[in-house]
Design a protein around this nucleic acid. Structure first.
Lengths: 221, 221
DNA sequence: GTCTATAGCAGGATAGAC
DNA sequence: GTCTATCCTGCTATAGAC
Protein backbone atom coordinates (compact mmCIF):
# COMPACT_ATOMS: atom_id res chain seq x y z
CA UNK A 1 0.00 0.00 0.00
CA UNK A 2 1.37 3.43 -0.90
CA UNK A 3 2.64 5.53 1.92
CA UNK A 4 -0.02 8.01 2.92
CA UNK A 5 1.94 9.51 5.76
CA UNK A 6 0.83 13.02 6.59
CA UNK A 7 4.45 14.13 6.81
CA UNK A 8 4.70 13.66 3.05
CA UNK A 9 3.72 16.56 0.90
CA UNK A 10 0.45 16.36 -1.00
CA UNK A 11 2.41 16.14 -4.21
CA UNK A 12 4.24 13.04 -3.03
CA UNK A 13 1.09 11.41 -1.73
CA UNK A 14 -0.58 11.98 -5.07
CA UNK A 15 2.32 10.35 -6.91
CA UNK A 16 2.26 7.32 -4.65
CA UNK A 17 -1.45 6.73 -4.80
CA UNK A 18 -1.62 7.50 -8.50
CA UNK A 19 1.04 4.91 -9.22
CA UNK A 20 -0.81 2.31 -7.23
CA UNK A 21 -4.17 3.02 -8.84
CA UNK A 22 -2.82 3.32 -12.40
CA UNK A 23 -1.06 -0.01 -11.95
CA UNK A 24 -4.23 -1.69 -10.72
CA UNK A 25 -6.73 -0.28 -13.21
CA UNK A 26 -4.88 1.50 -15.95
CA UNK A 27 -5.02 5.13 -16.96
CA UNK A 28 -8.65 5.07 -18.08
CA UNK A 29 -9.81 2.99 -15.14
CA UNK A 30 -8.87 5.65 -12.61
CA UNK A 31 -10.37 9.09 -12.05
CA UNK A 32 -8.63 12.14 -10.67
CA UNK A 33 -11.26 12.16 -7.93
CA UNK A 34 -10.26 8.67 -6.81
CA UNK A 35 -6.61 9.66 -6.75
CA UNK A 36 -7.04 12.85 -4.79
CA UNK A 37 -9.46 11.39 -2.31
CA UNK A 38 -7.20 8.38 -1.70
CA UNK A 39 -4.29 10.79 -1.30
CA UNK A 40 -6.37 12.80 1.16
CA UNK A 41 -6.09 16.06 -0.70
CA UNK A 42 -8.21 18.28 -2.81
CA UNK A 43 -9.48 17.57 -6.29
CA UNK A 44 -7.69 20.62 -7.64
CA UNK A 45 -4.31 19.44 -6.37
CA UNK A 46 -3.60 17.25 -9.40
CA UNK A 47 -4.04 20.14 -11.79
CA UNK A 48 -2.10 22.47 -9.56
CA UNK A 49 0.92 20.18 -9.20
CA UNK A 50 0.94 18.39 -12.53
CA UNK A 51 -1.16 20.41 -14.95
CA UNK A 52 -3.44 17.56 -15.96
CA UNK A 53 -4.10 13.87 -15.52
CA UNK A 54 -1.89 12.72 -18.37
CA UNK A 55 1.11 14.68 -17.13
CA UNK A 56 0.60 13.11 -13.73
CA UNK A 57 0.76 9.70 -15.38
CA UNK A 58 4.03 10.59 -17.07
CA UNK A 59 5.43 12.02 -13.85
CA UNK A 60 4.64 8.73 -12.10
CA UNK A 61 7.02 7.06 -14.51
CA UNK A 62 9.63 9.77 -14.29
CA UNK A 63 9.77 10.11 -10.54
CA UNK A 64 8.68 6.68 -9.32
CA UNK A 65 9.11 4.00 -11.96
CA UNK A 66 12.48 5.07 -13.33
CA UNK A 67 14.26 5.45 -9.97
CA UNK A 68 12.87 2.13 -8.83
CA UNK A 69 14.05 0.47 -12.03
CA UNK A 70 17.52 1.88 -11.38
CA UNK A 71 17.48 0.53 -7.83
CA UNK A 72 16.44 -2.83 -9.20
CA UNK A 73 19.29 -2.76 -11.67
CA UNK A 74 21.73 -1.96 -8.88
CA UNK A 75 20.34 -4.84 -6.86
CA UNK A 76 20.71 -7.12 -9.83
CA UNK A 77 24.37 -6.20 -10.28
CA UNK A 78 25.15 -6.65 -6.59
CA UNK A 79 23.35 -9.98 -6.51
CA UNK A 80 25.18 -11.15 -9.59
CA UNK A 81 28.53 -10.11 -8.18
CA UNK A 82 27.79 -12.18 -5.06
CA UNK A 83 27.19 -15.28 -7.09
CA UNK A 84 29.74 -15.04 -9.85
CA UNK A 85 32.79 -13.00 -9.18
CA UNK A 86 34.18 -12.72 -12.68
CA UNK A 87 32.48 -14.15 -15.74
CA UNK A 88 28.91 -14.94 -14.84
CA UNK A 89 27.27 -17.75 -16.77
CA UNK A 90 23.74 -17.67 -18.11
CA UNK A 91 22.31 -19.42 -15.07
CA UNK A 92 23.76 -16.83 -12.73
CA UNK A 93 22.34 -14.00 -14.81
CA UNK A 94 18.95 -15.69 -14.89
CA UNK A 95 18.93 -16.26 -11.15
CA UNK A 96 19.87 -12.71 -10.34
CA UNK A 97 17.22 -11.41 -12.70
CA UNK A 98 14.49 -13.67 -11.41
CA UNK A 99 15.41 -13.02 -7.81
CA UNK A 100 15.62 -9.27 -8.26
CA UNK A 101 12.33 -8.99 -10.08
CA UNK A 102 10.32 -11.59 -8.19
CA UNK A 103 11.68 -11.56 -4.68
CA UNK A 104 13.99 -8.56 -4.63
CA UNK A 105 14.50 -5.72 -2.17
CA UNK A 106 11.01 -4.21 -2.32
CA UNK A 107 7.63 -4.99 -0.91
CA UNK A 108 5.34 -7.33 -2.77
CA UNK A 109 2.92 -4.58 -3.52
CA UNK A 110 5.62 -2.28 -4.86
CA UNK A 111 6.99 -4.98 -7.11
CA UNK A 112 3.60 -5.85 -8.48
CA UNK A 113 2.84 -2.21 -9.12
CA UNK A 114 6.11 -1.84 -10.96
CA UNK A 115 5.47 -4.76 -13.28
CA UNK A 116 1.82 -4.02 -13.87
CA UNK A 117 2.66 -0.52 -15.03
CA UNK A 118 5.24 -1.90 -17.41
CA UNK A 119 2.99 -4.68 -18.67
CA UNK A 120 0.30 -2.17 -19.50
CA UNK A 121 2.81 -0.10 -21.41
CA UNK A 122 4.06 -3.13 -23.32
CA UNK A 123 0.55 -4.04 -24.37
CA UNK A 124 -0.23 -0.52 -25.48
CA UNK A 125 2.78 1.79 -25.45
CA UNK A 126 2.25 5.46 -24.67
CA UNK A 127 4.67 8.35 -24.34
CA UNK A 128 5.76 6.82 -21.05
CA UNK A 129 7.05 3.72 -22.78
CA UNK A 130 9.01 5.82 -25.25
CA UNK A 131 10.76 7.64 -22.43
CA UNK A 132 11.38 4.62 -20.26
CA UNK A 133 12.53 2.53 -23.20
CA UNK A 134 15.20 5.05 -24.19
CA UNK A 135 16.46 5.99 -20.76
CA UNK A 136 16.19 2.78 -18.79
CA UNK A 137 15.26 -0.36 -20.65
CA UNK A 138 17.44 -0.14 -23.71
CA UNK A 139 20.68 0.48 -21.80
CA UNK A 140 19.89 -2.31 -19.37
CA UNK A 141 18.93 -4.59 -22.22
CA UNK A 142 22.29 -3.90 -23.82
CA UNK A 143 24.07 -4.57 -20.55
CA UNK A 144 22.28 -7.88 -20.19
CA UNK A 145 23.00 -8.81 -23.77
CA UNK A 146 26.69 -8.22 -23.23
CA UNK A 147 26.61 -10.34 -20.09
CA UNK A 148 24.84 -13.17 -21.85
CA UNK A 149 26.64 -13.03 -25.18
CA UNK A 150 29.80 -14.89 -24.07
CA UNK A 151 27.69 -17.48 -22.24
CA UNK A 152 25.78 -18.47 -25.35
CA UNK A 153 26.81 -20.71 -28.22
CA UNK A 154 28.39 -18.82 -31.12
CA UNK A 155 25.55 -20.02 -33.34
CA UNK A 156 23.14 -17.67 -31.56
CA UNK A 157 22.84 -14.45 -33.53
CA UNK A 158 21.92 -10.97 -32.30
CA UNK A 159 18.23 -11.60 -32.83
CA UNK A 160 18.35 -14.92 -31.02
CA UNK A 161 19.99 -13.16 -28.10
CA UNK A 162 17.18 -10.58 -28.05
CA UNK A 163 14.53 -13.28 -28.18
CA UNK A 164 16.09 -15.12 -25.29
CA UNK A 165 16.22 -11.98 -23.20
CA UNK A 166 12.64 -11.12 -24.09
CA UNK A 167 11.61 -14.60 -23.04
CA UNK A 168 13.21 -14.20 -19.64
CA UNK A 169 11.44 -10.90 -19.19
CA UNK A 170 8.21 -12.48 -20.39
CA UNK A 171 8.35 -15.03 -17.59
CA UNK A 172 9.22 -12.51 -14.91
CA UNK A 173 6.61 -9.99 -16.03
CA UNK A 174 3.97 -12.66 -16.38
CA UNK A 175 4.38 -14.15 -12.93
CA UNK A 176 4.13 -10.67 -11.44
CA UNK A 177 1.42 -9.33 -13.71
CA UNK A 178 -0.92 -12.30 -13.67
CA UNK A 179 -0.73 -12.99 -9.96
CA UNK A 180 -4.44 -13.44 -9.54
CA UNK A 181 -4.65 -15.92 -12.37
CA UNK A 182 -1.58 -17.82 -11.18
CA UNK A 183 -3.04 -17.97 -7.69
CA UNK A 184 -6.35 -19.31 -8.99
CA UNK A 185 -4.64 -22.04 -10.97
CA UNK A 186 -2.01 -23.12 -8.49
CA UNK A 187 -3.92 -22.30 -5.32
CA UNK A 188 -0.81 -20.58 -3.95
CA UNK A 189 -0.57 -17.13 -2.41
CA UNK A 190 2.51 -15.05 -3.22
CA UNK A 191 4.27 -15.67 0.10
CA UNK A 192 7.98 -16.17 0.55
CA UNK A 193 7.84 -19.90 -0.05
CA UNK A 194 5.96 -19.57 -3.30
CA UNK A 195 8.16 -16.75 -4.57
CA UNK A 196 11.24 -18.84 -3.88
CA UNK A 197 9.61 -21.66 -5.76
CA UNK A 198 8.87 -19.34 -8.68
CA UNK A 199 12.44 -18.07 -8.77
CA UNK A 200 13.76 -21.62 -8.83
CA UNK A 201 11.29 -22.56 -11.49
CA UNK A 202 12.18 -19.62 -13.73
CA UNK A 203 15.90 -20.16 -13.28
CA UNK A 204 15.61 -23.81 -14.24
CA UNK A 205 13.33 -23.05 -17.13
CA UNK A 206 15.55 -20.28 -18.42
CA UNK A 207 18.85 -22.00 -17.84
CA UNK A 208 17.73 -24.97 -19.87
CA UNK A 209 15.88 -22.77 -22.31
CA UNK A 210 19.06 -21.00 -23.20
CA UNK A 211 20.61 -24.31 -24.07
CA UNK A 212 23.32 -24.31 -21.44
CA UNK A 213 24.46 -27.29 -19.50
CA UNK A 214 23.00 -27.85 -16.09
CA UNK A 215 24.84 -26.58 -13.09
CA UNK A 216 25.62 -28.55 -10.01
CA UNK A 217 23.65 -26.55 -7.49
CA UNK A 218 23.38 -22.93 -6.73
CA UNK A 219 22.45 -20.91 -3.75
CA UNK A 220 21.76 -17.23 -3.68
CA UNK A 221 21.15 -14.48 -1.13
CA UNK B 1 -10.07 -5.73 -38.87
CA UNK B 2 -13.53 -6.82 -37.76
CA UNK B 3 -16.01 -7.64 -40.46
CA UNK B 4 -18.29 -4.67 -40.96
CA UNK B 5 -20.23 -6.20 -43.79
CA UNK B 6 -23.68 -4.74 -44.16
CA UNK B 7 -25.15 -8.21 -44.58
CA UNK B 8 -24.35 -8.86 -40.94
CA UNK B 9 -26.95 -7.82 -38.43
CA UNK B 10 -26.25 -4.80 -36.30
CA UNK B 11 -25.91 -7.06 -33.32
CA UNK B 12 -23.10 -9.02 -34.95
CA UNK B 13 -21.33 -5.89 -36.14
CA UNK B 14 -21.42 -4.53 -32.61
CA UNK B 15 -19.92 -7.71 -31.20
CA UNK B 16 -17.10 -7.70 -33.75
CA UNK B 17 -16.15 -4.07 -33.35
CA UNK B 18 -16.55 -4.21 -29.58
CA UNK B 19 -14.17 -7.14 -29.36
CA UNK B 20 -11.61 -5.33 -31.44
CA UNK B 21 -11.84 -2.10 -29.47
CA UNK B 22 -11.93 -3.76 -26.04
CA UNK B 23 -8.84 -5.74 -26.97
CA UNK B 24 -6.98 -2.63 -28.07
CA UNK B 25 -7.92 -0.26 -25.26
CA UNK B 26 -9.60 -2.20 -22.50
CA UNK B 27 -13.11 -1.86 -21.14
CA UNK B 28 -12.60 1.61 -19.69
CA UNK B 29 -10.71 2.88 -22.71
CA UNK B 30 -13.65 2.42 -25.06
CA UNK B 31 -16.97 4.27 -25.14
CA UNK B 32 -20.29 2.94 -26.33
CA UNK B 33 -20.35 5.80 -28.78
CA UNK B 34 -17.08 4.66 -30.34
CA UNK B 35 -18.39 1.13 -30.64
CA UNK B 36 -21.71 2.01 -32.23
CA UNK B 37 -20.25 4.51 -34.62
CA UNK B 38 -17.53 2.08 -35.74
CA UNK B 39 -20.24 -0.57 -36.14
CA UNK B 40 -22.29 1.92 -38.17
CA UNK B 41 -25.36 1.71 -36.03
CA UNK B 42 -27.19 3.81 -33.52
CA UNK B 43 -26.03 4.64 -30.03
CA UNK B 44 -29.11 3.00 -28.55
CA UNK B 45 -28.36 -0.33 -30.23
CA UNK B 46 -25.97 -1.49 -27.51
CA UNK B 47 -28.55 -1.04 -24.82
CA UNK B 48 -31.27 -2.55 -26.96
CA UNK B 49 -29.32 -5.70 -27.82
CA UNK B 50 -27.23 -6.21 -24.70
CA UNK B 51 -28.80 -4.19 -21.92
CA UNK B 52 -25.66 -2.29 -21.00
CA UNK B 53 -21.98 -1.90 -21.76
CA UNK B 54 -20.80 -4.45 -19.25
CA UNK B 55 -23.14 -7.13 -20.55
CA UNK B 56 -21.83 -6.44 -24.04
CA UNK B 57 -18.32 -7.05 -22.75
CA UNK B 58 -19.37 -10.38 -21.28
CA UNK B 59 -21.21 -11.32 -24.45
CA UNK B 60 -18.04 -10.66 -26.44
CA UNK B 61 -16.38 -13.38 -24.43
CA UNK B 62 -19.32 -15.74 -24.61
CA UNK B 63 -20.02 -15.48 -28.31
CA UNK B 64 -16.63 -14.57 -29.75
CA UNK B 65 -13.77 -15.48 -27.45
CA UNK B 66 -15.03 -18.86 -26.26
CA UNK B 67 -15.86 -20.28 -29.72
CA UNK B 68 -12.54 -19.08 -31.06
CA UNK B 69 -10.74 -20.69 -28.14
CA UNK B 70 -12.50 -23.96 -28.93
CA UNK B 71 -11.48 -23.70 -32.59
CA UNK B 72 -7.92 -23.08 -31.47
CA UNK B 73 -8.05 -26.14 -29.24
CA UNK B 74 -9.30 -28.23 -32.13
CA UNK B 75 -6.49 -26.93 -34.31
CA UNK B 76 -4.00 -27.75 -31.59
CA UNK B 77 -5.25 -31.35 -31.38
CA UNK B 78 -5.18 -31.82 -35.13
CA UNK B 79 -1.72 -30.33 -35.39
CA UNK B 80 -0.45 -32.52 -32.58
CA UNK B 81 -1.94 -35.63 -34.18
CA UNK B 82 -0.09 -34.79 -37.40
CA UNK B 83 3.24 -34.66 -35.62
CA UNK B 84 3.00 -37.42 -33.06
CA UNK B 85 0.60 -40.19 -33.81
CA UNK B 86 0.49 -41.88 -30.41
CA UNK B 87 2.35 -40.60 -27.38
CA UNK B 88 3.41 -37.04 -28.03
CA UNK B 89 6.52 -35.85 -26.25
CA UNK B 90 6.90 -32.46 -24.63
CA UNK B 91 8.51 -30.92 -27.69
CA UNK B 92 5.60 -31.91 -29.89
CA UNK B 93 3.10 -30.45 -27.44
CA UNK B 94 5.11 -27.25 -27.23
CA UNK B 95 5.37 -26.93 -30.98
CA UNK B 96 1.68 -27.48 -31.54
CA UNK B 97 0.84 -24.96 -28.86
CA UNK B 98 3.23 -22.32 -30.12
CA UNK B 99 2.18 -22.84 -33.70
CA UNK B 100 -1.52 -22.76 -32.92
CA UNK B 101 -1.32 -19.63 -30.82
CA UNK B 102 1.29 -17.68 -32.76
CA UNK B 103 0.82 -18.71 -36.37
CA UNK B 104 -2.38 -20.74 -36.32
CA UNK B 105 -5.45 -20.75 -38.53
CA UNK B 106 -6.62 -17.19 -37.95
CA UNK B 107 -5.66 -13.76 -39.12
CA UNK B 108 -2.96 -11.88 -37.30
CA UNK B 109 -5.39 -9.30 -36.10
CA UNK B 110 -7.81 -11.89 -34.79
CA UNK B 111 -5.07 -13.70 -32.91
CA UNK B 112 -3.76 -10.54 -31.36
CA UNK B 113 -7.27 -9.53 -30.33
CA UNK B 114 -7.76 -12.93 -28.73
CA UNK B 115 -4.61 -12.75 -26.66
CA UNK B 116 -4.96 -9.12 -25.69
CA UNK B 117 -8.39 -9.77 -24.27
CA UNK B 118 -7.06 -12.67 -22.27
CA UNK B 119 -3.97 -10.79 -21.10
CA UNK B 120 -6.15 -8.00 -19.80
CA UNK B 121 -8.27 -10.50 -17.93
CA UNK B 122 -5.21 -12.16 -16.44
CA UNK B 123 -3.87 -8.87 -15.16
CA UNK B 124 -7.20 -7.90 -13.65
CA UNK B 125 -9.77 -10.70 -13.73
CA UNK B 126 -13.43 -9.79 -14.10
CA UNK B 127 -16.55 -11.92 -14.36
CA UNK B 128 -15.45 -12.80 -17.88
CA UNK B 129 -12.34 -14.51 -16.57
CA UNK B 130 -14.38 -16.49 -14.09
CA UNK B 131 -16.61 -17.81 -16.86
CA UNK B 132 -13.85 -18.48 -19.34
CA UNK B 133 -11.63 -20.08 -16.74
CA UNK B 134 -14.29 -22.60 -15.73
CA UNK B 135 -15.65 -23.44 -19.16
CA UNK B 136 -12.61 -23.26 -21.40
CA UNK B 137 -9.26 -22.78 -19.78
CA UNK B 138 -9.42 -25.22 -16.90
CA UNK B 139 -10.51 -28.19 -19.03
CA UNK B 140 -7.86 -27.42 -21.63
CA UNK B 141 -5.27 -26.93 -18.93
CA UNK B 142 -6.15 -30.36 -17.57
CA UNK B 143 -5.94 -31.86 -21.02
CA UNK B 144 -2.50 -30.35 -21.55
CA UNK B 145 -1.35 -31.49 -18.13
CA UNK B 146 -2.33 -35.05 -18.92
CA UNK B 147 -0.49 -34.86 -22.23
CA UNK B 148 2.63 -33.51 -20.60
CA UNK B 149 2.59 -35.60 -17.44
CA UNK B 150 4.04 -38.79 -18.98
CA UNK B 151 6.66 -36.75 -20.84
CA UNK B 152 8.10 -35.22 -17.68
CA UNK B 153 10.44 -36.72 -15.11
CA UNK B 154 8.65 -38.37 -12.18
CA UNK B 155 10.29 -35.88 -9.86
CA UNK B 156 8.06 -33.12 -11.20
CA UNK B 157 5.04 -32.72 -8.92
CA UNK B 158 1.60 -31.38 -9.76
CA UNK B 159 2.63 -27.83 -8.99
CA UNK B 160 5.74 -28.09 -11.10
CA UNK B 161 3.61 -29.28 -13.96
CA UNK B 162 1.33 -26.26 -13.54
CA UNK B 163 4.26 -23.88 -13.44
CA UNK B 164 5.70 -25.33 -16.61
CA UNK B 165 2.39 -24.98 -18.40
CA UNK B 166 1.96 -21.44 -17.13
CA UNK B 167 5.42 -20.62 -18.42
CA UNK B 168 4.59 -21.86 -21.89
CA UNK B 169 1.45 -19.78 -21.88
CA UNK B 170 3.43 -16.82 -20.57
CA UNK B 171 5.70 -16.93 -23.59
CA UNK B 172 2.89 -17.32 -26.09
CA UNK B 173 0.74 -14.61 -24.53
CA UNK B 174 3.68 -12.26 -24.21
CA UNK B 175 4.82 -12.48 -27.80
CA UNK B 176 1.26 -11.79 -28.92
CA UNK B 177 0.37 -9.19 -26.31
CA UNK B 178 3.53 -7.13 -26.42
CA UNK B 179 3.90 -7.04 -30.18
CA UNK B 180 4.68 -3.36 -30.34
CA UNK B 181 7.40 -3.64 -27.74
CA UNK B 182 8.88 -6.73 -29.36
CA UNK B 183 8.87 -4.97 -32.71
CA UNK B 184 10.62 -1.95 -31.27
CA UNK B 185 13.34 -4.06 -29.72
CA UNK B 186 13.96 -6.54 -32.50
CA UNK B 187 13.04 -4.27 -35.39
CA UNK B 188 10.92 -7.07 -36.85
CA UNK B 189 7.34 -6.86 -38.06
CA UNK B 190 5.05 -9.81 -37.35
CA UNK B 191 5.21 -11.28 -40.84
CA UNK B 192 5.31 -14.98 -41.64
CA UNK B 193 9.08 -15.23 -41.40
CA UNK B 194 9.21 -13.64 -37.97
CA UNK B 195 6.32 -15.67 -36.63
CA UNK B 196 8.03 -18.86 -37.78
CA UNK B 197 11.13 -17.68 -36.05
CA UNK B 198 9.17 -17.01 -32.87
CA UNK B 199 7.57 -20.44 -32.95
CA UNK B 200 10.97 -22.06 -33.34
CA UNK B 201 12.37 -19.95 -30.57
CA UNK B 202 9.58 -20.78 -28.17
CA UNK B 203 9.72 -24.47 -28.97
CA UNK B 204 13.43 -24.59 -28.33
CA UNK B 205 13.14 -22.53 -25.20
CA UNK B 206 10.29 -24.61 -23.85
CA UNK B 207 11.62 -27.99 -24.84
CA UNK B 208 14.83 -27.34 -23.03
CA UNK B 209 13.06 -25.51 -20.25
CA UNK B 210 11.04 -28.57 -19.46
CA UNK B 211 14.22 -30.47 -18.93
CA UNK B 212 13.75 -32.97 -21.70
CA UNK B 213 16.47 -34.26 -23.90
CA UNK B 214 16.96 -32.59 -27.23
CA UNK B 215 15.26 -34.08 -30.21
CA UNK B 216 16.91 -34.81 -33.47
CA UNK B 217 14.94 -32.46 -35.70
CA UNK B 218 11.33 -31.77 -36.14
CA UNK B 219 9.23 -30.45 -38.91
CA UNK B 220 5.64 -29.41 -38.64
CA UNK B 221 2.76 -28.29 -40.83
C1' DG C 1 -0.38 25.76 -1.42
C1' DT C 2 -4.88 24.36 -0.45
C1' DC C 3 -9.58 24.84 -0.62
C1' DT C 4 -14.75 25.52 -2.60
C1' DA C 5 -17.49 26.10 -6.31
C1' DT C 6 -18.56 25.53 -10.80
C1' DA C 7 -17.97 25.63 -15.76
C1' DG C 8 -18.20 22.72 -19.62
C1' DC C 9 -18.50 18.50 -21.52
C1' DA C 10 -18.57 13.39 -22.36
C1' DG C 11 -20.17 9.33 -20.52
C1' DG C 12 -23.99 5.52 -20.11
C1' DA C 13 -28.59 4.87 -20.33
C1' DT C 14 -33.64 5.61 -21.60
C1' DA C 15 -38.15 7.22 -23.64
C1' DG C 16 -40.83 7.20 -27.33
C1' DA C 17 -41.57 8.09 -32.45
C1' DC C 18 -41.23 5.52 -36.55
C1' DG D 1 -35.24 -3.15 -34.77
C1' DT D 2 -33.68 1.33 -35.47
C1' DC D 3 -33.70 6.09 -34.89
C1' DT D 4 -33.64 10.99 -32.45
C1' DA D 5 -33.70 13.49 -28.57
C1' DT D 6 -32.67 13.86 -24.00
C1' DC D 7 -31.70 12.86 -19.03
C1' DC D 8 -28.44 12.77 -15.59
C1' DT D 9 -24.34 11.45 -13.66
C1' DG D 10 -19.58 11.98 -13.20
C1' DC D 11 -15.55 13.53 -15.50
C1' DT D 12 -11.51 16.96 -16.22
C1' DA D 13 -10.21 21.35 -15.64
C1' DT D 14 -10.32 26.14 -13.96
C1' DA D 15 -11.46 30.48 -11.37
C1' DG D 16 -10.92 32.69 -7.42
C1' DA D 17 -11.31 33.00 -2.09
C1' DC D 18 -8.38 32.10 1.72
Amino acid sequence: MPSTDTTETARERILDTAESLFAQRGFDGVTVRQITSAARCNLAAVNYHFGNKKSLYLEVFRSRWVPRAKRLQAHFRANLADQASMRPDAAAVARSLAHTFLAGPMTDEERQRHHQLMSREMGRPTEAFQMVAEDVIRPFFKELAELLRPALPKTVDQEGLSLNLLSILALVLYFNFAREAVTRITGRKYDKAFKDRLVDHIVTFVRNGLGCERMQGEEVT
